[in-house]
Amino acid sequence: MNMPDSDSLLAEQLLRLTRRVHRIQKRQLHERGLGVTPAQSRLLRTLAHWETPPRMADLAERLEVVPRAVTTLVDGLEASGKVRRVPDPANRRVIRIELTDDGVKVLQELHAVRRAAAEEILAPLTDEQRRALGELLDTLVDTHG
């Protein structure tokens, strides 16, 4: 077995799976009429993990994108009422981004979209295959995450 060919095949399979997951999530976002793009949904999920509302620079770093990309995402989410810009209580020149009540509701729907996408992707696997896949993915994430 030629390892580079085998590794290339695995890499291609992982990329195809990732694209399939994105397509399913995008379709379900559209079907549910949530009015968010996949990139906006990622920003909303990221926002949910902060104890205090982050600055745009914090979001850009966490999302590994340029700050301008975060500004564009926040502008769209703010226009639709899912996030708001708030001044930092300690330094009013600093702006932080927080979820609105509508943003929290959309985030709950996004979790349902992700679960449904996972169910669709994993449907052909047995419970044993799912456990094995989970262990393999944990190994990859823990080693390279």
Rank of each mutant, 00 (worst) to 15 (best):
D7L: 12
A11G: 11
L15E: 13
R16W: 00
T18H: 15
T18Q: 12
R19I: 04
R19D: 14
R20W: 06
V21P: 02
K26Q: 11
Q28I: 01
Q28S: 05
H30T: 13
H30F: 10
R32L: 13
R32Q: 15
R32V: 00
V36F: 09
V36D: 13
V36T: 13
T37F: 03
P38E: 06
A39I: 05
S41R: 14
R42V: 03
R42F: 03
L44V: 09
R45A: 08
T46D: 12
A48P: 01
H49C: 09
W50Q: 04
R55W: 01
R55K: 04
M56V: 05
M56P: 00
A57S: 11
A57D: 15
L59K: 05
L59M: 12
R62D: 14
E64H: 14
E64N: 14
V65Q: 12
P67Q: 11
V70D: 09
V70N: 11
T72M: 04
T72W: 10
L73D: 07
G76H: 08
L77D: 10
E78V: 00
S80T: 09
V83N: 07
R84N: 09
P87S: 04
D88E: 02
D88W: 00
A90L: 02
A90I: 00
A90G: 03
N91A: 09
R92V: 02
R93V: 05
I95Q: 14
I97D: 06
I97H: 08
E98D: 14
D102V: 10
D102K: 08
V104S: 13
K105Y: 09
Q108Y: 05
E109D: 15
L110Y: 02
A112Y: 02
R114M: 01
E120L: 02
A123V: 04
A123Q: 12
P124L: 06
P124Y: 13
L125F: 15
L125Y: 15
L125I: 01
T126H: 08
D127P: 00
D127L: 08
A132T: 09
L133M: 13
E135I: 04
L136K: 11
V141D: 10
V141N: 06
D142A: 14
T143E: 15
G145A: 06
